[in-house]
């Protein structure tokens, strides 16, 4: 082999197995990304010791950084592997699973708790059914739409959770991604009717008080979602809510 792509991959056969490192080399071709290379290795799963091994397990789907499936650590950085171009990466390219979620196998992890948290914070606009009500939704200014659009690009990929020092096994902090979703739904004209429900969820243990203001979350977000801005805004909203709750007692 002349020019090669060299991978060093942290593998683990199952949730309770010991992790181990395995290296692979494959022929270089321009325009590879990490997932297209893993697809090549699926067909030719031979490690650098010449052993044919079980192909690496991982999750991916869209291959264009919109579905959020292929989050992993690429050279130590949490990101979408499909948008990590081999030509831009230092070799050997080190792939590791996200560390904040239970391992399923190799690079695949279980991100279910993020989706459970979306239920907890009621991240939706309540409807009186999906039937046509023969009336359009309230108007939204282009400026408000632009801000909401930024939040609504969240793929629930987990990169911000990985980067957050407060989000880990021994903490009940719900993690930065959820704040963007609460900000999104609180800012909707009718979604805002139920603002208090979402804010109360954030005032519970593990909510907004858990943020340590490390500001790592928005730096790794593949969609540049201003999560720190959302946390700041929701900090104000929860304070107002707290006062309102006091008065209503």
């Amino acid at each position: 082999m002349d020019k090669v792509i060299h991978f060093k991959i942290k593998r683990q056969d199952g949730p309770n197995s010991q992790p181990y490192w395995e290296e692979f080399k494959m022929p270089y071709a321009p325009q590879h990304n990490v997932i297209s290379a893993l697809l090549y290795l699926r067909e030719h799963p031979v490690n650098t010791r010449g052993q044919r091994v079980a192909p690496v397990a991982w999750e991916s789907n869209c291959m264009e950084e919109v579905c959020g499936a292929c989050s992993m650590l690429v050279n130590g950085v949490p990101r979408q592997a499909c948008a990590a171009l081999v030509d831009d990466l230092e070799q050997p390219i080190v792939l590791e699973p996200l560390t904040k979620f239970p391992i399923i196998r190799d690079l695949a992890v279980d991100r279910q708790k993020m989706f459970d948290a979306l239920i907890r914070v009621k991240a939706w606009v309540p409807l009186d059914g999906s039937q046509d009500v023969h009336e359009p939704a309230p108007r939204i200014s282009p400026a408000d739409q632009a801000l909401r659009y930024v939040y609504s690009r969240c793929m629930t990929c987990g990169c911000c959770m990985e980067a957050c020092p407060q989000y880990h096994d021994h903490s009940d902090f719900i993690g930065p991604a959820l704040f963007g979703q609460v900000a999104l739904h609180n800012s909707h004209p009718t979604g805002g009717f139920f603002k208090a429900d979402r804010l109360h969820a954030l005032m519970d243990p593990g909510g907004i008080a858990g943020c340590g203001n490390a500001q790592n979350c928005f730096k790794v977000c593949p969609k540049d979602i201003p999560l720190t801005h959302a946390i700041g805004e929701l900090g104000r909203q929860t304070t107002v809510q707290w006062l309102r709750d006091l008065l209503m007692k």
Binding site: V125, L127, S130, D132, H134, P136, A137, P142, Q145, T190
Partner: peptide, 24 residues
């Protein structure tokens, strides 16, 4: 025929459709 009602339903769900200056 049902398409306009359907997109308005999506709008009610909070989908971030791009807007005219009048907010529709």
């Amino acid at each position: 025929q049902d398409a306009p009602g359907l997109v308005h339903t999506y709008d009610r769900m909070g989908v971030t459709f791009s807007r005219t200056p009048e907010g529709i």
